[in-house]
Design a protein around this nucleic acid. Structure first.
Lengths: 339, 339
DNA sequence: TAGTATGATGTAAGCGCTTTCATTTATAGC
DNA sequence: GCTATAAATGAAAGCGCTTACATCATACTA
């Protein structure tokens, strides 16, 4: 492995000049630059980026912390970020936090220790205080799907309340008046906000909410099945169901089918997230689009603009969900209902 | 940020002693060790791992190159690797190669430049020669889903031929004798091997292969749809279909449903991979399990054993597929067939 | 007590690169 | 040609840590 010393010797210049060429400094004449580049090529020189990072305290890399490395949601987000950074010549370093405080902190410290120039964080367990203190340090951070008022300019979020509203309004517009709701874990703000949107739409249409038609899941498909069973076992009539995410909708659909319900004629279902699996569920799931890929790209653009001064585009912190109509929800028709 | 100099001053020892404590050297007395640890704790000392890497040419990290950051396949593999490494106190650094030679090389060089202690590679575009030469260097590599005879001990693969055999045999055992096949891109070794397994099972059951009941897709679900249309348009009769992966099976199922086929009574379908989506397809997909999570864990164990000397377990290079029976394939029954 | 071996600690020299400040060179204007 | 200014280049000092070899302290044996 050739070093900067060997390049400087072959080119007949100092280390500092080689460094300037490497880093595109204007303080190098074209003649000298050509000489140095030729020496680099002859030696097959590759900069040692560890040494660069130690000397400069920068790494040309963006650190990303996600909850998990698997799953359609995180895959889309990571791809969105990575594609945007790669296009700008930046690398990413990815860590997983597993939604546990200690593990999230460990991941963040790993990224810091790697001299990442900025952090893009999707974290759930660490406290607001920890993040606020982190943001007070020299390392810029962007939060995805986590809103902290003190760091509002650094937060990139989906308008979950509007998503819940849109999901519910669709069913109401289709004539349904007896709606059940399967929620995510209600300590999570996105689960709470989606439910708030649901309540807003119900109120707007003057439909009374029956608390017995509410069940709380954990965002996994098995809890969707469980909640669906609970709702059906209650014996209460409902012709439509809003699920706080697609996976729980998938579980609910499976249970409904096992119970002999004709879908969507006897029960219309709307999910949330527009995961790739929504297209494979039968009937194809009507859902709310969560543009996580685009949000990842926006986080990357935030970094490129604020840290690397590379972009002049307008940044966007709040993303709007969109209704995606497929086949799992249809117009209410009393003739389809069995007692 | 406290440095090693500040720790050595507070503890009243040399830099080397602090370094020895940090790196668990036996050449430190318990008295001194306690003193140094107390100084570290008082100062909130965190080692600068960039400096550690530069000085030691090691990083306590394993580099991973995958084709993409999204998708169930890569997510499972990444999670498998990361979980195993994390449990052993190692970090991972992940890069994406996008199945393009230049991008794969760029990703590998990024990982090398970060002083990764070993590389786990899932690469498609770079040549065998490149990888052989890379393996001759000082940096140990493990290949997932890529078999190179000269590097056999470093390759972790699935027995794709057996998977294709199992998929086809299942349908033959269920009484089917007119089988169609949707292949992956036949320049890819896994696509080729799976088809070879299909041919073996057909020969074993003495069933003649009709070349007109073969279509080549690209592993994406849209090509599954296209190939299915092609097969149905041929007007040739077939009661069962083997698809070289689950995504193409999903596309084929959608097309069959649109053409009014009753599934699985009129057409039995088997996929390959056991992606998570297989459970959401309706009818639930009978498929071949590809234990990519476990293979990722095995790759990590290879590294832990060979680089870090941490494991004494028996390593496994070839993984066997398994048949997963669900609902998309049923016994052949002539009464179900329409002319 | 002296000599030897072992364990513990310290000193010094990097690892490959960046960057500040000093020095040199080139250019423009008078 | 001289002077002032700007551009270009070089020298030197780290960045935070590792580690080989030198040195010191201690225990054991003859």
């Amino acid at each position: 492995m050739a070093t900067i010393y060997q390049v400087s010797e072959l080119a007949g210049v100092s280390l500092a000049t080689v460094s300037r060429v490497m880093n595109n400094s204007p303080r190098v004449s074209d003649t000298t630059r050509t000489k140095v580049l030729a020496a680099m090529e002859q030696l097959g020189y590759r900069p040692n980026s560890i040494a660069q990072s130690l000397a400069s305290n920068r790494s040309n890399s963006v650190g990303i912390l996600v909850s998990e490395l698997h799953g359609p949601f995180y895959g889309e987000m990571l791809s969105g970020i990575e594609n945007e950074c790669r296009a700008a010549g930046k690398h990413v370093i990815i860590a997983a936090g597993h939604s546990e405080e200690a593990s999230e902190i460990d991941g963040i410290e790993f990224l810091i220790s790697r001299s990442c120039d900025a952090l893009i964080l999707h974290v759930e367990a660490v406290s607001d205080d920890y993040l606020i203190k982190l943001a007070e340090g020299k390392l810029p951070i962007v939060l995805i799907n986590r809103y902290i008022p003190q760091l509002a300019a650094n937060c990139i979020c989906l308008n979950n309340e509007l998503g819940g509203y849109l999901a519910t309004r669709q069913l109401l517009q289709q004539g349904h008046r007896q709606l059940a709701y399967i929620a995510g874990p209600m300590w999570k703000s996105d689960a709470k906000d989606r439910y708030a949107g649901h309540l807003r739409a119900m109120a707007e249409y003057g439909v009374k909410v029956n608390p017995a038609l509410f069940a709380e899941g954990d965002f996994q498909d098995s809890s969707g099945s469980r909640c669906m069973q609970q709702l059906l076992d209650s014996g209460l009539a409902f012709t439509a169901l809003v699920c706080a995410n697609d996976e729980m909708a998938a579980g609910a659909i499976e249970t409904a089918r096992q119970r002999g319900l004709n879908l969507p004629q006897q029960l219309s279902i709307v999910g949330f997230d527009n995961l790739i699996l929504a297209r494979y569920i039968h009937p194809k799931l009507t859902t709310i689009d969560y543009p996580i890929g685009e949000m990842g790209r926006m986080a990357a653009r935030w970094v490129l603009k604020n840290i690397y001064q590379q972009q002049t585009i307008r940044l966007k912190n709040v993303f709007e969900p969109a209704l995606i109509c497929r086949e799992s929800a249809c117009h209410f028709d009393a003739a389809n209902q069995t007692a």
